[in-house]
């Protein structure tokens, strides 16, 4: 049914949040497929261009990077790795056709400088994707990064350990990853829908086949 004109205008600008169904006109606002159909469907089409998303991981190396590999493969410009837990390994990445020349890795212990670097990256035309490992970000910091990402239409991910407190953050999507036989993804918050219980995501396709040794 048609909504009154003002409501229509609000929806145009995307300021009106509607519950479970992704408004059709969102499609003109660009989505980047996450590479995993089951995840795209929940996210309303993929990662939103110009958004910052949080990946909470139960513990490192449970498949979080495998989850992001499809995005890494399709990015045209540079990617900034900020404070990765270990060294990204060139032969492993080039095995998945990731363009090594476009990866910039920054190690900076001082949080303020790290955030400064993140912001510089988002402001620069040459960087398209930001991967940031950070134990804890305050709401203000997340807000600033979200504004910078949105203004420049960049995609950013913050990988943090599981956050116990439930305070709101300005992330577009907040995911919680855990590993059993398969990678379980739980959507704590998403732009276009209610939070969802954990569902399996088939990232293991980009990892060595697992075998059941009796």
């Amino acid at each position: 049914m048609a909504f009154p004109a003002q409501v229509e205008a609000l929806m145009q600008k995307g300021w009106l949040w509607q519950g479970q169904v992704a408004p059709p006109q969102q499609t003109k606002q660009q989505f980047i497929s996450s590479g995993w159909p089951e995840l795209d469907e929940q996210l309303g089409g993929g990662w939103l261009q110009g958004s910052i998303n949080e990946l909470q991981i139960q513990q490192p190396f449970i498949g979080e990077l495998a989850l992001l590999i499809p995005v890494l493969q399709r990015v045209q410009a540079a990617t900034l790795w900020l404070n990765p837990p270990q060294q990204p390994y060139a032969p492993g990445l080039s095995y998945q056709q990731v363009d090594l020349a476009q990866q910039v890795v920054v190690q900076e212990a001082d949080p303020k400088l790290a955030l400064w670097a993140a912001e510089q990256a988002l402001l620069s035309d040459s960087v398209q994707l930001l991967l940031m490992w950070h134990p804890h970000l305050s709401a203000v910091q997340v807000r600033r990064l979200q504004q910078a990402a949105h203004a420049q239409q960049k995609l950013a991910f913050v990988i943090t350990p599981w956050q116990s407190s439930e305070e709101a953050r300005a992330y577009v999507n907040r995911l919680q990853l855990s590993r059993t036989e398969q990678l379980q993804v739980r959507l704590l918050k998403r732009r276009f829908g209610w939070p969802l219980p954990p569902f399996p995501c088939s990232v293991d396709k980009l990892l060595p086949r697992r075998r059941r040794i009796v």
């Binding site: 990204p88 060139a90 032969p91 990445l93 080039s94 090594l100 020349a101 990866q103 910039v104 890795v105 920054v106 190690q107 900076e108 400088l113 400064w116 670097a117 510089q120 990256a121 620069s124 040459s126 960087v127």
Partner: peptide, 19 residues
């Protein structure tokens, strides 16, 4: 961008993947 990051954080802090 790299130049500014190196100037501010120090040269050895900004790295690249090398095979």
């Amino acid at each position: 961008l790299i130049g500014r990051l190196q100037a501010r954080l120090g040269e050895h802090k900004v790295q690249q993947l090398h095979t």
